[in-house]
Structures are given as C-alpha cells and as structure tokens.
Amino acid sequence: MLPIPILLRLARRLEKLWEPKPEPLTRPERAWASLRTQLIEAESLRWRIEQATARRLDCAAASLKQELSTLLKVMGRRIDELRAHCDVPPTRAPDCCEWIRELRHLESEFGTVTVRWTDTVIRIVTEPIELKNVPLGPFAIEFDWTGGPSAIGSRAFEVKALKPNHPAGRSDVTHPHVEDDILCAGEAKDALDQAVADGRLVDAFQLVQSVLTNYNPHSAYVSLNEWDGSHCAQCGRRIRSDDASSCEGCDCELCDECGERCEGCEELRCGDCLESCDVCRERHCRGSLSTTGGRAVCSDCREVCSGCEASLSKDELDSDGRCPTCSSKEETDDPAPETDAAEAIPL
C-alpha cells in the first residue's frame, strides 16, 4: 500500500495536472467574432435595401433582399452552434480527495502500485497472462502522467513484458497486441482516451488489462498460431513451424518458396549453399561440384580424357574426347599438314 505522504504527493501532482486550463481561442470565440461581423454586414444590407426601395430600384432591392436572406440563414446556424456550446456542462476535474480514492482503488484492484517520480510513471503488474495456451508471462502496465488529461490514453501507457515470450524473429513483440511496449487498444481506444481525460485511472488500467487478457486473431502483430514459428532465412517471411523446411547444408529455416533442390543430389538447400556449375550454370550444392582447373564443375559436366584419363570439364575436351595436352601431343606425333592432304585429294 502506498504510504500516506507519497499518496498525498501523487494526488496533489495529478490534481494540478488535471485541473481545467483556461479555454484557448477555439471555435466558440471564432464563432462570436464571425457573428459580430455578419451582424454589421446585415445592418448594412438592411440600410441599402431601404435606400433601394425609397428610390424604387426594385431589381436592386430584390437582389439585396436575397443576399440578406442568405446571410441571416448563416447567422442562424452560427447562433445554433453557440447555443449548443453553452448547453455543454463544464467539465469538473477530480480534486485531491478523488485522486486519493482513485489511487487507493487502483491498489485494491491490482495490488502493489509503484510510483516512479523521475519517470512520472504509475506502474502495476498483472498476473501471468496465457492466451490460447501460449504463456506470455506477467506484464507491467505503466502510466505516464506527464500528458495529463489531454494525453491520448493509449499512448500514455506502456506495457512491458516481465518474462517476455517473444514470437520467433520478433523481439519487438511481446503480446499479439503489443509492439515496442505500446499497446494497440483496438476496441478499447475511445473508452481509454475518455477515462484518461476524466482522470479515471482505475478504469484506464482495467481497460488495458482487458485488452491484454483477450486475443483478436483478426488484428494481431503476430498471430498466436505462428507464435512458435520462425522466419525464412532467405526472404525473411514468417513461416509456421508446420510449413517450415530446412536447408540440408546449413540447417537454416526456409519457406516453401525459397528452398531449392541441388541439380546433382536433389537435396533441399538455401541459396547460400548452392553454387552454379561453371560449365552448365545449373545450381548445385558444394558436394556435387568438384574443382577442375580452378573451376567448379558438376559431375554431368566432367569427363575423362580418352588419352590420359584425366578428369576434366567437358568443354575442355576436343571432339575426340581428348584433353588439350593429349590433343597437342597427337598433333606433334603426326606432322603431316592438313593443307597438303587437302591439296592431294582433288588431283
């Protein structure tokens, strides 16, 4: 329970923040100013109509009457606005006693209430929360009173997971409706804003807690179904654990679109674990490629020289299946120039 001196100090601080401020120059003042201008204009029109009538300028008088009628209609609407504004009862801010009741009520609803003066924060801690069998742990709900009644209710709160159970790959999400410690209040937003504006802290905290203890699958930062899922290492897309596959080279998680099979061994690999054969350009895992003359070549593109039986890439062998060395050697052993043979045939 908050000690009485702290309770009083906090109640006084909140009372001062929530006390009504002098109304700024807003709509009612502008409406009054506009009405005054229109009244002067209407008087002028009335005088001009009298003059036109006296001089029997019927056409001008009719036009001026039409103008006056339009102006009076606008003035009527302005008067309705001002009357509506007068009918709104003045807002009464909670006094120090009401704040004390509010703070004691907060303690009776949530147990320990902590005040952090330097951060201007009132903090309570929820029971551990579990949604659809996903344990999310307890949350600290922190209300920053700096903004007073004009603060946007949902933005005045931070929701911090005390034993965070983040969904895979999203360290910024601690709850389906909490991102970066900010609650997306959804249906509670308007009521939360109103509760903060009225200084009804208990209602505001209860609304935040109600959102935390419920789950809206249609609008969640991360669906609870995917809470234990992971991200594709290739494209970063979230994948459900049931749909995930893994690279057989480095074990990274892959979505159904990013996995690729090696053209040689047909094992599933990620893009980082596949390389192109320098001859056919087909993608292969490293185990299916061998280095020949400084080039990575797949088994389909590797052949044995018919002369020396050395293993080479097939684009290095001549039409007779000989490597460049065997090919040049044979040319040296058989010096007969082809040109001579060509010349001899026709004759």
């Binding site: 389906p176 409706h177 991102e179 609650l183 997306c184 209040a185 959804g186 249906e187 509670a188 009804r200 208990v202 209602d203 209860q206 609304l207 109600s210 959102v211 935390l212 203890t213 419920n214 789950y215 809206n216 609008s219 969640a220 930062y221």
Partner: peptide
C-alpha cells in the same frame, strides 16, 4: 456504478 468490459479486443497498429 462503473461498468468496464473485460472481454475487449485489441488490434495491431
């Protein structure tokens, strides 16, 4: 008398 919903749906962003 105050009435506060305990089943209320949040959202995302």
């Amino acid at each position: 008398i105050s009435i506060t919903p305990s089943k209320i749906e949040g959202a995302s962003a």
